[in-house]
Design a protein around this nucleic acid. Sequence first.
RNA 1: GCCCGGAUGGUGGAACCGGUAGACACGGAGGCCUCAAAAGCCUCUGCUCGAAAGGGCGUGAGGGUUCAAGUCCCUCUCCGGGCACCA
Length: 824
Amino acid sequence: MAEPDQVQAIEKYDVQATEKKWQDHWDSAGTYQVENDDPRPPFYVLCMYPYPSGPAHQGHVRNYTFGDLIVRHRTMRGHAVLTPMGFDSFGLPAENAAIKSGSHPRPFTDARIEELKASIRRLGSMYDWRREIHSHDPEFMRWNQYIFLRFLEAGLAYRATAPVNWCPGCHTVLANEQVLADGTCERSGDIVEKRDLEQWFFKITDYADELLADLDGLDWPERVKTMQRNWIGRSEGAEFELRVSGGADNVDSQGADTSISVFTTRPDTSFGMTFVVLAPEHPLVPSLVTDQTRTDVDAFIERVRKETEIERQSTEGAIEKRGIFTGSYAINPFNDQPVPIYLADYVLMTYGTGAIMAVPGEDQRDWDFAKAYDLPIVRTVQPPADFDGEAFTGDGPAINSEWLDGLHMAEAKAKAIDWIEAQAIGVRKVNYRLRDWLLSRQRYWGCPIPVIYCATDGIVGVPDDELPVLLPDDVEFRPTGESPLNFHEGFRNTTCPKCGQPALRETDTMDTFVDSSWYFLRFCDPRDGQEPVNHDAARHWMPVDQYIGGIEHAILHLMYARFYTKAMGDLGLSPKEIREPFKRLFTQGMIRMGGTKMSKSKGNLVAPAQYFDTVGADALRLFHLFVGPPADDMDWSEQTDEVIEGCGRFLQRLWRLAVPESEVPRAGDAAVVGELERATHRLVDRVSGEYERWSYNTAVAAVMEFTNLLYKQGATEEAIDTMLLLMAPMAPHVTAELWERRRGGHIHEEAWPVADPELARLQSVTMVVQVNGKVRDRIEVDPGIDEAEAERLALASDKVAEQLAGADPTKVIARPPRLVNIVA
RNA sequence: GCCCGGAUGGUGGAACCGGUAGACACGGAGGCCUCAAAAGCCUCUGCUCGAAAGGGCGUGAGGGUUCAAGUCCCUCUCCGGGCACCA
């Protein structure tokens, strides 16, 4: 019960009401809406658009807290900040849910989007919602298909046979993610087979070199760039032909006139080739098998074909079982010696030529194979004297190599390639690990691939004026997961746009990574009805100045988006000069719980809603900023709730300090006021720097420290106001409310404070005095003192005299104003 | 196997350029306020010896460079991630 004649109690901070008030205000005032002709310098901040799986989880909260902080900070620094948001709304989970519940993926997806949007709003994270895009918007689908057709015309999209994951139980192709680690289907449990099927591909390999080279200019985490470099996997070497021998011991071979093409990165070691190995699927195999070997070879090939990808990729199996002799020989062109031709499951048809020259002296796999099959080993690089390994892969002078002898690796490679080219048996060659992007999916809930198959005209693109090809709604989802488009006669049957005869529509849909490969370009002018990307708008905003998302997208999404940006530029679909989509990338760490990633499928989500309803969005945001470096993984532990509550307590403490009727003592003493002014300017310096280098955890620590200082020695209005400005991007609601009460107006429309360097300078610093590297005294000194003065002050210390015990120092290292070390 | 990260109090973390190790917070202990509690405020809190003053030890392990090492170099252990027969 309040005592009426007591001093009026400070109004308590009403978290829920205040957060709602400001979220409504920012929305209705359009604080974070921005026009394309805004005169302020442009800055594009983008969080990876999310897959709508329901209300936000902590990973979203973390992502959008960082993103929103940058948006608000940059705005206060005078930029026109583009901050769009959308939803990656196609994909399997919605379709699987539809199969389960009998509903349609669209209403299901739309409901999940509304849930996610509501929690993003509740976080107080601000976007220009006028620019919202969903992957399944008909307009977005239209331009998605339009781009596909331009890629098709340019030969960047093509159809080819590829081995895919086929589930015999479900009668459908599975995405790699649907195949479990043991090689079975996630739904039916059947063993997934590799089947050769006609699929759509994007020719990303055309851009391999540019994708590799342009990584150097990106301000991205080094480890993401490394992952992309490894994924592209550029290897330089040579490709050359080996004649198949028709020698006397090879009379029944039919391959006497054929030759085998091999790729090698070590042409310098060619004199050491003692056998050749082909992939079991190699097309030349039938012509190399002899009557004596046929039975065994066929059995071997049959066994390999039945192996799952997992078994085949395993290094566990005994090497003796992994290969077989064909019965034929090839001629090593370097020394004209015949070498036996083997098949082995570890040679992949999908890389290089599907055939290798084996050099056991300089390749460990070849060494192991040679040992197992009793094949000769010839060293062609001299290992160092102390080398006691098997194959030697390092550099050294060539030996046993005739005209290459004595040359080191680089020279020998060049000379060997020159020789190969002079002999007209091969060429210098670059190979990539990167494969073309298989984009077709035999599923319903994706963007239809806009082509028609005509008996007369073949593959025909859907005319632009008939776009978008939409998904029919009157479909029945089968429990097997087979796409209902296959059974929808109205969708499937159409007429050829060229000849008008009956034709069949493509029923495959696009990989959802296609949608996310250009959405950031569309955001620049998302309602443009003339073209997928408005060039002027893209020139104004692109590239994205700060892209933020999870490390799990380090390779696929970020590689595909880079490819799309380059390809669209080259085809005139977006400005050609925009070669890279994301200038700066930040990858936040994962949130783990009990050692594993926090995720819906693991069932270990801690919903943000419970914190919104108690401590509020500001406290949860502050927690995510404070808990540790943004790039690091964080563990959600039993202690986490207490830390979040601590952040809430800190905001209440801030409220009591800053709310106008506050009873906190004001600094009265002139010296204290002066010192506070300087401390304030130092805080501005410190926090501004920490914002720049993503050190948000220490930025929060700095304002906590400053609050403690204001409680201890009294506050000034200027100190409080400045701290509120610095905190406005971190805890937007409470700072907005306090600012309005203290000053009127809107804190997020204020300019970012700038420190006066003169005032920010320290007046005195603690100089450490060491004797033999151990701290013995601390002296307050002027920051401007010179070496001589520092040394004089240090030597005058009683503690030092005590340590020296009358002896003369042998050396004095003075690093004013911080440290003097006296060496006795 | 190869390529990246990482290891600091009871806990999350700080220390940006080689110069006071442990900022800030959580937890814990004690105190004030209160009839009491909650909330709030204040003090202490790396380990260790000591009543104290003060000393010793201390950043995964071992070596090295340096006046000085959490930070640089070498070797190793453990943990996390990526690629995994790429010729």
